[in-house]
Design a protein around this nucleic acid. Structure first.
Lengths: 223, 223
DNA sequence: GACGATTATCGCAGATTCGCGCTAAATGTC
DNA sequence: GACATTTAGCGCGAATCTGCGATAATCGTC
């Protein structure tokens, strides 16, 4: 294949180009826990040089983009190698482009959000941890901004549709769905208002939950 | 400054990197017209090789990112050199990352939205034109997707606040504001509902419009 | 069988929002 | 001064939404 040359007889690669990285806010909901985020040890990927500083030794997972790779594929590769997670659908949040943001050189970072069911999230605890987003503390490289935007985006999506990120195993009850939505929202939700908003978007399986004391709850799957 | 080298003794620039481009949906409202977009002739910037094809000779303005440049600065430079526009605040929409999207090589495109008051938009008509977004026709490189997302984003912003992009000269009347919002929304708006939503966010100047038949309208500026 | 616990539904009051017709005020034109 | 035009405000009915207490149904435990 002939290499394209422009009007100055130069190839695209003759011009200075940035390194492109992806950083991902991975959000999950542990059983009985709060909305939480995955953090990896600094030094295990993109970012800080040494990672020995106090309070900044943790960061969001990320990696450099490989040649010809899609951003989403880079995100998934990064999550696989850092946390053993696969088969998810990351969504873009924002590109951070300060040329001085990384002391190794000119790096653009495309921030992403990915939401992972807790059972899929097996991690090497010497390299990574999951913490409630409220307890994330100060992160480097504007990762707190990424996290904040990720949480806001997730809350907006959950306000509009039942479990859009597929965190619940199917089938589930209205009570389980409400509890999940309350965890994502970070506040209690009115039972009737919640039901009025969500039930029209659900498909009843026609079956009932078993093994509970009290009237058995109806079971639902996605609409 | 010592060049950073990683654990393989390689600099960042030793690894393959994409070229990074910015493409911008520039939206404006001509006097008495509809919500419109700026198109430039293909071949005048990033994109098509020859630009002689029918129906695809027009595209959104864009440029390659220069070394150490912020994405927003690249957008502004692109608009200055292609349309003589300056001093605006572009916002990111999405990164398009298909390695095959550009036949000259591996190019990521960071799509942006920028909104420009009509009087600021002087263009060289041999290189650019402004068309209603409904009449944009088929554009290359997924530029229709960029345009659609830009319009949706702008409509959401205008639904929530009075003239957030500053298209109106100050001061203005409620009637002028409503007319602008109707142009952006692409549909009529109820007078009372509109006033209830917007008036609390406006600052009355205390003055009245002059030179009109009928009760003079109150004048407003931003909140 | 009684009981506690849970789900589901719903009536209903109150709150909020919307749309529209009507009226008053204030201007310029004739 | 009469008139047309425009702005501004508002009363009010309709529509929608919310929250909550009450009730019925259905399970497991004792």
């Amino acid at each position: 294949m002939e290499i394209y040359r422009d009007s100055h007889d130069r190839a695209l690669t003759d011009y200075p180009r940035p390194s492109v990285a992806v950083d991902t806010a991975v959000l999950t909901v542990p059983p009985g826990g709060e909305l939480s985020a995955l953090l990896v040890r600094a030094g295990a990927g993109v970012g800080t040089g040494t990672g020995t500083g106090t309070g900044t030794a943790w960061r969001l997972p990320g990696t450099f983009l490989h040649e010809g790779e899609l951003l989403a594929d880079a995100v998934l590769r990064s999550l696989r190698t850092k946390a053993g997670v696969s088969g998810l659908s990351p969504r873009q949040l924002h590109v951070f482009d300060d040329p001085a943001r990384d002391n190794r050189g000119w790096v653009l970072s495309v921030a992403h959000l990915d939401v992972v069911p807790w059972p899929s999230l097996t991690i090497d605890e010497s390299l990574a941890k999951v913490v409630p987003v409220a307890d994330a503390g100060a992160l480097p490289y504007g990762h707190n901004d990424i996290l904040d935007q990720a949480v806001a985006t997730l809350r907006t999506r959950y306000a509009a549709a039942p479990d859009p990120a597929g965190l619940l195993e199917h089938p589930f009850t209205l009570r389980q769905l409400q509890h999940l939505h309350e965890t994502v929202a970070g506040e209690p939700l009115m039972r009737d208002s919640f039901r009025r908003a969500m039930e029209p978007q659900l498909a009843a399986t026609g079956e009932l939950a078993a093994g509970t004391v009290g009237k058995p709850a109806r079971l639902f799957s996605g609409a």
